[in-house]
């Protein structure tokens, strides 16, 4: 009798310790720190500097969420994940959210039990080759050796594309982007394939970027976005609307510089709602009125973040393209703040 009571307690204690919690917001607040899954290192997207401080386009999303939830953009623990480990890290509760060049696909959203909360970069898969190879189109890659990160959509797209084009290739499986760079630079593969943004970033980190070209073919749609665990709607809402706040801020011309002033004097009620000067949108998600202001305050709106991390003025030099606001011919379109 006594023994079984003891075992019962043990079981319950163990369960409480080992369970993935459904209330991520409470966990993050209690911990005082946001665990954010990022890539192991991709210039412009997520990369630690010499002092171990992370920065980049994906990192900015994590920081914005931390600022919105915890009021402090530095309270983030960045967890580097590879293509293979990222979803397990999220599912197991090791990280609260992923901001890691992850493509929103049907099976990831459903079968893998993730929730993609939006798209922070509209991308597509491309190929990079050395210029002296004399290749100008991906269709000329018959028989080539191609480096590819495992556990990605990239490897599936590649298989499909070569099959539909009736071409042969030899895949070289690699684990991280750094390994891919090294293999490609050593000539162990003729071409390196991944998301075009990743290629631009990889090329920018080479000593001789001018000797490499990105082929014109874009063989897939890769909407990259932050993801959270399926089943915690409140947390998903928070991350989703933090991203939307950054995008909407750009649309309405709200920047980190003019934010305070607009909150006080903007004639646009939508801007006032976004910045918490009117209504209490933040409270509806379980945060406070000023959450979006804090998020935008970290590194500015979507456009400012883009320009500072991966934009045309940076070595990566990505044009806005599809990632321009819908008013500028792009696909970015934040739902109304109302």
């Amino acid at each position: 009798m006594k023994k079984s009571a003891f075992l019962g307690t043990l079981t319950v204690a163990g369960l409480a310790a080992g369970m993935v919690s459904a209330a991520t917001l409470d966990d993050v607040k209690a911990r005082g720190e946001l665990n954010c899954g990022v890539s192991t290192g991709l210039t412009g997207f997520s990369l630690p500097d010499a002092n171990g401080v992370w920065s980049g386009f994906d990192v900015a999303i994590c920081r914005a969420v931390a600022a919105a939830v915890l009021g402090d953009a530095t309270k983030v623990k960045f967890v580097p994940t590879t293509g293979q480990t990222r979803f397990t890290a999220l599912a197991s509760g090791e990280v609260d959210m992923l901001a890691r060049n992850s493509t929103w696909t049907f099976s990831r959203d459903t079968d893998l039990k993730l929730d993609f909360v939006g798209v922070n970069y509209y991308d597509g898969q491309g190929f990079m080759v050395r210029k002296d190879l004399g290749v100008t189109s991906a269709k000329e890659l018959e028989g080539a050796t191609i480096c590819i990160q495992t556990g990605t959509t990239t490897e599936l797209n590649l298989a499909d594309w070569f099959k539909t084009n009736n071409l042969n290739y030899t895949p070289v499986a690699i684990e991280t982007n750094a390994e891919g760079e090294q293999q490609y630079a050593a000539g162990a593969c003729d071409a390196y394939t991944t998301d075009a943004s990743g290629l631009a970033s990889t090329r920018a980190s080479f000593a001789d970027p001018e000797n490499h070209i990105i082929l014109p073919e874009i063989i897939s749609k890769e909407p990259l976005g932050p993801a959270v665990r399926h089943g915690d709607n409140q947390w998903a809402d928070i991350v989703r609307w933090t991203l939307n706040a950054l995008i909407a801020a750009e649309e309405y011309g709200v920047t980190s510089a003019n934010m305070e002033e607009l909150a006080a004097n903007s004639p646009n009620p939508e801007v006032k709602r976004l910045l918490g000067a009117e209504g209490d949108l933040g409270v509806m998600t379980g945060l406070d009125k000023d959450w979006a202001k804090r998020a935008i305050g970290v590194a500015g709106n979507y456009g400012e973040i883009f320009a500072a991390t991966i934009g045309e003025a940076t070595p990566i030099g990505l044009a806005r393209g599809l990632n321009a606001q819908w008013t500028q011919g792009g696909l970015l379109y934040a739902p109304p703040f109302r």
Binding site: L15, M19, V20, K113, L156, H230
Partner: peptide
Amino acid sequence: VDNTIRNLQALGKDFNFSFLGARAGYDIS
């Protein structure tokens, strides 16, 4: 075992091997 079952439930995942019959979609050199 119990912890695993509960966690799988919390994640909404089941335990089955039918994926072995699905198309792999990737190439092996």
